[in-house]
């Protein structure tokens, strides 16, 4: 799995993480292309089913990036998102998946550097965990067939 390039979905709040990503771009701070950003009006809009569907469709890792604690544009959307992430982590655990494939991250709009660093770190973590269990099965059978 040396050349494993994970697919990562990041649900980014329009008011912070998404803007931070933009800033990282304009400042030419690079971050891994593995991270696919989905812009949301607030992380409070991200439901458990969205995270689940991302995994179902093959994501190796998913994170929700919202505003710093107390800074939500809609009061407490980020807090709610945090609870939902924890809820889905529980489902993943029940299914025997690593719960670290899912994370809640917070930052402000001005933190371009933090956005890039987070994207790098999360990508590294998922590389360590390896492909999603869905793909692991496909690879295992593929290797068996090849062997």
């Amino acid at each position: 799995m040396e050349n494993f390039e994970p697919e990562i979905v990041a649900f980014c709040c329009h008011y912070c993480a998404y803007t931070a990503a933009d800033m990282a771009g304009s400042k030419r701070i690079s971050y891994p292309p593995n991270v696919k950003i989905i812009r949301v009006p607030c992380t409070g809009k991200v439901d458990a089913i969205h995270m689940m569907k991302a995994f179902e469709k093959g994501a190796d890792g998913v994170y929700v990036a919202g505003c710093l604690e107390g800074d939500c544009h809609f009061k407490n959307g980020n807090t709610r998102a945090g609870y939902r992430v924890a809820y889905v982590q529980k489902i993943l655990e029940e299914l025997g998946w690593e719960k670290d494939r899912l994370a809640m991250i917070t930052m402000s709009a001005g933190m371009g550097e933090r956005f890039a660093r987070t994207a790098r770190e999360f990508t590294e973590k998922i590389k360590e965990l390896g492909p999603s269990p869905i793909k692991q099965f496909n690879t295992d059978t593929h290797q068996q067939a090849a062997g």
């Binding site: 458990a48 089913i49 689940m52 569907k53 995994f55 179902e56 489902i91 029940e94 299914l95 025997g96 998946w97 269990p133 869905i134 692991q136 099965f137």
Partner: peptide, 13 residues
């Protein structure tokens, strides 16, 4: 929807 998704994940695995 959530349960269906979880059951799918389990099978895909």
């Amino acid at each position: 929807g959530l349960l269906a998704s979880a059951l799918h994940l389990n099978c895909l695995k």
